[in-house]
Nucleic acid binder design. Sequence first.
DNA 1: AAATGATGTTAAACTAGATTAACTTTTATT
DNA 2: AATAAAAGTTAATCTAGTTTAACATCATTT
Lengths: 194, 194
Amino acid sequence: MNIAPLLNNITKYINLTDEEIEFLKSKIIVRKYLKGQYIVQQGDVCKYECFVLSGCTKTFYIDKEGQEHIVMFSIEDWWTSDMGSFITQTPADFNIQCLENSELVMFSIDVIEDLYEGIPKLERFFRKLVERAFVASQKRIVRNFSLTAKEQYLFFREQYPKIEQRIPQYMIASYLGITKEFLSKIKSQLILEQ
Amino acid sequence: MNIAPLLNNITKYINLTDEEIEFLKSKIIVRKYLKGQYIVQQGDVCKYECFVLSGCTKTFYIDKEGQEHIVMFSIEDWWTSDMGSFITQTPADFNIQCLENSELVMFSIDVIEDLYEGIPKLERFFRKLVERAFVASQKRIVRNFSLTAKEQYLFFREQYPKIEQRIPQYMIASYLGITKEFLSKIKSQLILEQ
DNA sequence: AAATGATGTTAAACTAGATTAACTTTTATT
DNA sequence: AATAAAAGTTAATCTAGTTTAACATCATTT
């Protein structure tokens, strides 16, 4: 198992000694999932924070009308979990499902706590990670309020060009909070315009 | 200056010794603002993370059409800042303005860094604080996608009854992402219903 | 008490995006 | 190659929420 991408990700924010890396390696689990498999199911407690080594996941929930709403996608080098469920160990609001065969590094609550004990610097790493996630989430709220559907789609396309190619359009529509029919209309408008 | 509410807030997540409390006290600044004064202005670098001892603030941005969008309110016992600007020390997306005379504990970047050095446990405290802020932000995105304006208003009223009473309706409309006219319509519908 | 400005309401006309439904294209399975 | 299933398109109709504009109420200042 090659966890170099994880180490790269962590050492963007903090430095690790060789012993710390060994300690980290001794704690983590790498797991493979097949396309379609669930990492977390709405209603269950989310047991892991995950780092994506390869593959792609979607995080979504099913509303009271049975409609699916995609909250985020995660590809290589991203973290994913239902953080609300994970930190409080209460039932998850979200499902996390693999859209491709994927390989993930899994951090259980116990492992995370052990790591914070053994490598206190990791507390800083995760603080910075969540700070950035929070800022991204705030910016998304802002976009939802001030951009039209077309503008949001253009933003998405520019921001996540790699994701767009790997994922069916109807899922992108769901992520943007619009119907697949309307996204289709936006795309045909964009073609006419250029 | 009575910073008991701040200490209470921190000791919800971590314990502090008497020396640590003294160290903390030696570092922080408490500042008073008048109604209408700005704590942060869009375009400036956000210099402080703030804890509200008393009063009330709104965090908002002005979009390209000159329209104001309120992102959050903060009252006693809440934290506020433009975190994106603060952690990267780049120009702020948001304004933070006092809606009432307010008293705030101000943490500059340097002070925060000193505190992390002197009281490493604070790293944990702020991690947990931001984790919760992130989860709340995610849940807000979910509500934006799956609730009607009326449902969102009812949720707001239930969740933040104290805030609703202190703030003009048109600001609540802005926070909910709807026009003041439509909120007015919703309210008159609610009166007819009961 | 009058006047000004800020806040809130009502109603008519409008629009971005949803819904429905029929159809086409692409991909996967036998 | 044939079939089925999944993904994407088009168009007509509908609706939640916006826009505009006129008016009403409340609070503050003189």
